[in-house]
Computed example of a mutant assay.
Amino acid sequence: MKNIYLVRHCKASGQAADAPLTEIGIAQAKQLVHFFSDKNIDSIISSPFERAHQTIHPLSAQLGIEITLDDRLMERVLIGEDHPDWYEMLRQTFDDLDLCYEGGESSRTAMARAISVVDEILSSRAQNTVIVSHGNLISLLLKHFDKRMGFKEWEALSNPDVYHLSFDNHSPSVKRIWTESSL
């Protein structure tokens, strides 16, 4: 059986690629070390965004496992420029996976790049992998495995958040394992 732990980054100072974690986010990242202490993690893959790899760096350092940065785990670009109706636009992309706004990528395209990372993990020797990414991309990845995942579930994600995907014969079980009491 293979286990993949999808981690949404800890609290960050913004949405830019170089936005670091806040003081609260740094404390949360340290708490993730304890959270994963009994999971036998043997592989860590992260979005190259600062807030993502800062989230998992304490665990990486504790375990002596190098973080593999992977551009396929970057947050999904909804639209090429800031838009006042981005929230409603995002909601629509959960209903129409092929909807693509100018300068952005469709849900289906973003989902495919995230799934390619999972497929590589499933064919690797790693047994217990942590993937660190961003809310929209993680929700799309989860939607691939559980069609019930949608806009409301994206809204309910926390920073951080952790989902456990356990694969037995490439058929996953999906479970949210992070709660505020996990802190």
Rank of each mutant, 00 (worst) to 15 (best):
V117H: 00
A110N: 01
R76Y: 07
D161G: 06
I131T: 03
D161A: 04
F145L: 03
A114V: 05
V77W: 04
H83V: 04
Y101W: 10
G80L: 07
F145D: 03
Q62L: 09
V130L: 00
D71K: 15
S139C: 10
S123T: 09
D82K: 13
R148E: 12
K147A: 14
L63K: 14
L73H: 10
G150K: 02
V130M: 00
L142M: 08
G103I: 06
G104K: 04
H144R: 10
L142H: 01
L63H: 11
M89W: 09
H83Q: 08
M149P: 04
L69K: 15
A156N: 14
V132N: 05
R113V: 04
L78Q: 02
R108F: 03
P84W: 07
H144G: 11
G135C: 08
L73G: 08
I138C: 01
E155T: 00
I65R: 09
S158F: 02
E105I: 06
R108H: 13
D96T: 14
E153Y: 08
I67Q: 10
I65H: 12
M89A: 05
D71I: 12
S116G: 03
D70Y: 15
M74T: 15
R76P: 04
P84Y: 07
R125C: 05
D95H: 09
D161F: 06
L99D: 09
F94Q: 00
I131Y: 05
I138R: 04
D95Q: 11
S133M: 09
L90N: 07
S123L: 08
D161M: 04
W154N: 02
D70S: 14
K147Q: 14
I65Q: 13
R72H: 15
S60V: 02
P160S: 13
R108S: 12
D146S: 11
